[in-house]
Amino acid sequence: MSTARAGDPLLLVRQLRVEFQLPSASPWATPWSKKETLRAVDSVQLDLRPGETLGIVGESGCGKSTLARTLVGLQQPTAGAIFLDGKDITHLGEEGWRQLRRDVQMVFQDPLASLNPRMTVGESIAEPLHNLYPEMPLQQRWRKVRDIMPRVGLEAAWINRYPHEFSGGQCQRIGIARALVVEPRVLICDEPVSALDVTVQAQIIQLLKDLQAELNLAMLFIAHDLAVVKDISHRVMVMYLGKVMAQSSSKMLFQRARHPYTRALLGSVPLPDPQRERAREPQVLEGELPSPLNPPSGCVFRTRCPLADNLCSMQVPALRQTIAGDYAACHYADQTP
């Protein structure tokens, strides 16, 4: 999957699979009965270069958060491999991941709930330093905290305040400061703006874009809002039921999407122009998301796909290149207008 960007990928994911064992839902189930397997992430590949943002979109339950948690080591993968800077980090274990957290950090969805209410802002931001750089002199740590606060738009004077004294947007700035204070190379943002007001969303997105350019971060940006993803990402990956449906450059995806699911997602975004919005043919996805415990055979999207036929129920479509830089997992990707 070569793109025009130079440099080797910093984060490389190959055939990643994450499964959860769930107790059977049957009323006759005993603790000994066979567990059901939920495959949250299936055969996901991706690579990420320094200075690049990969957006991941998909409906709730498509496995995007599980993917993010796996990439920061909060979740063990079932199969597949993750490489950071050429080093296999798939099975590092707790201690190995702890060391790795200098390089890989994460920003979470609910900003206020993600901060310990018993700690001041300064303590929260400084904690990763205490923990990951215990040899760093105390004064230097606090100087770093004081330095990073204005960079994320917080006044350094607020250092002794508690999280509940801040707004949602400010809390997310604290979350970003906390993640960036250890100067990571990879930043994984799991729906960092979906809990915020639209105006605040725009501020946080702009902040993330600026910081990325400044620090040359490799960024993974997860969202369910296509407009948000379009704004920040260089490339976009579309997930459905744990699988990658499509991947292409941000521009291409929004102009000429090849995959029917991507098109359906784009069709569900309202157009800002009311006249064009009214004139547009409504594209609403029929049906419900199938249960990930019992996914459809063949192409997982076929139960809701307007193009689906026999081939789709028998054969899993591979992720293949349609035109340069655009990938789609669909048997009929070439036939879409």
Binding site: Q99, R101, R102, Q105, F108, D110, S114, N116, L132, G175
Partner: peptide
């Protein structure tokens, strides 16, 4: 959530 954050801090 804040425990998850703490874990992510390493």
């Amino acid at each position: 959530n804040f425990i998850r954050t703490a874990r992510a801090k390493g």
